[in-house]
Computed example of a mutant assay.
Amino acid sequence: MKVVAFKRELQGTGASRRLRNSGQTPGIIYGGSEAPVTIALDHNALFHALKKEAFHSSVLDMEIDGVTQPVLLRDFQMHAYKQLVLHADFQRVDANTKVHLKVALHFVNAEVSPAVKLHAATISHVANEIEVLCLPSALPEFITVDLSNVEVGQSVHVSDIKLPEGVTAVTHGKNLTIATVSVPAGQVSAEAAAAPAPEAKKGKK
C-alpha cells in the first residue's frame, strides 16, 4: 500500500492546528540510521486508509519528495469525538531486521465445528489480534484461526494456531487464550434433541 507524505518544517501546537485546518494530518517517521522526519499527510486519504485492516499490519510504501521507503504504521491518535486523525507515527523498515507487530485474527469454520453443529454452542473471541515477530517480507495481513474441530468446553490458545512460515507468536511465556466455547444455559444440543424420550411408566392396575 502506498502513502504519500510531505516534509514539514514548522512544528508546535499552533503549526499542527493550522495544518489540520488545511485538511492535513501531522505525523512523524522514525527508526533506522536516519534522523526522525516530521511529515504531513492528506487527512481524508489517511482517514479512509485507517479503516482498512491491511493498513495496520502491512509494510507501507511511503513516498516523500519523490523518494519511497518502506514503513510500518506504529501509532495514531484520533479526536475524542470528531472523525479527525490528530497525528500518525510511522517506523522505517529494514528488510533484514525482524519487526514486532500486532496482526488481526480471522476466525473461520465455526459453523461446521462439532461444538456448534451438535451442541449449538457459542464461540466467544477473547482476542482479535496477536503479536508476532517476523521479517517484513513474511508479515501476514492477517492470521486465520480454523475452528472446524472445536468441541464444547474447549478453549483455543495461541499454540493451536497454524502460523505462516517465518512468523513467530510473541506470547511473553504464556499460552494465551484467543477463543472459548460454551453452551448457553437452557440450550438443548442436537444430540439431546435427537435422543428418544424415555418411556412413561405404566400405572398400576
Rank of each mutant, 00 (worst) to 15 (best):
Gly173Thr: 12
Thr180Phe: 01
Asp94Ser: 15
Val145Trp: 01
Gln77Asn: 08
Leu105Cys: 14
Ser182Arg: 15
Asp146Leu: 08
Thr122Glu: 05
Thr97Ile: 12
Leu133Asp: 13
Gly166Lys: 12
Ile130Gln: 07
His157Phe: 04
Phe76Val: 06
Val112Lys: 07
Ala104Arg: 13
Ile130Tyr: 01
Asn149Trp: 09
Gly186Tyr: 09
Lys82His: 06
Arg74Ile: 03
Thr171His: 11
Ala138Tyr: 10
Ile161Asn: 08
Ser124Val: 03
His106Leu: 11
Ser124Ile: 13
Val158Thr: 09
Ala120Gln: 13
Gly173Val: 12
Val152Cys: 13
Ser155Phe: 00
Pro136Thr: 10
Asp94Asn: 04
Ala127Leu: 06
Lys98Ala: 15
Phe142Ser: 15
Val150Ser: 02
Lys117Phe: 11
Lys174Ile: 06
Val132His: 04
Ile143Asn: 08
Val116Ala: 06
Ala104His: 10
Val126Lys: 15
Ile143Trp: 05
Leu118Gly: 10
Pro70Trp: 03
Pro136Phe: 06
Pro114His: 10
His157Tyr: 08
His100Met: 14
Pro114Ala: 12
Ala110Tyr: 09
Val183Ala: 06
Glu151Met: 10
His157Leu: 10
Gly153Thr: 09
His125Leu: 06
Arg74Gln: 07
Thr180His: 03
Thr144Gln: 08
Asn128Gly: 08
Gly186Leu: 05
Gly173Glu: 05
Gln77Tyr: 01
Lys117Tyr: 00
Val71Gln: 04
Gln154Ile: 07
Val93Gly: 02
Leu133Pro: 08
Ala104Met: 15
Ala88Tyr: 04
Ala121Glu: 13
Ala95Arg: 12
Leu105Gln: 03
Glu111Phe: 00
Arg74Phe: 14
His119Asn: 14
Gln77Pro: 01
Ala169Leu: 10
Ile123Pro: 09
Leu147Cys: 02
His119Ile: 02
Val108Ile: 13
Leu163Phe: 03
Ala88Thr: 09
Ile123Met: 02
Gln77Met: 04
Asp146Tyr: 00
Leu101Tyr: 02
Glu165Thr: 08
Leu133Arg: 08
Asn149Val: 00
Ile161Arg: 12
His119Arg: 05
Val112Gly: 01
Arg92Lys: 00
Asp89Trp: 06
Pro140Tyr: 03
Lys102Thr: 10
Pro140Asp: 02
Phe107Ser: 01
Gln91Lys: 11
Leu147Glu: 01
Gly186Val: 11
Glu151Gln: 13
Ile161His: 14
Phe107Asp: 06
Asn128Pro: 10
Gly153His: 11
Asp89Thr: 07
Ala138Glu: 05
His125Cys: 05
Leu101Cys: 10
His125Tyr: 07
Gly173Phe: 02
Arg74Met: 07
Thr168Ala: 14
Ser155Gly: 12
Thr177Asn: 12
Val183Ile: 02
Phe142Asp: 10
Val126Trp: 00
Ala127Cys: 15
Pro70Ala: 06
Ile161Gln: 11
Gln91His: 05
Lys98Met: 01
Glu131Pro: 04
Thr168Glu: 15
Leu147Trp: 01
Pro114Arg: 12
Ser124Tyr: 13
Lys117Asn: 03
Thr97Met: 14
Thr180Arg: 00
Leu163His: 00
Thr171Tyr: 02
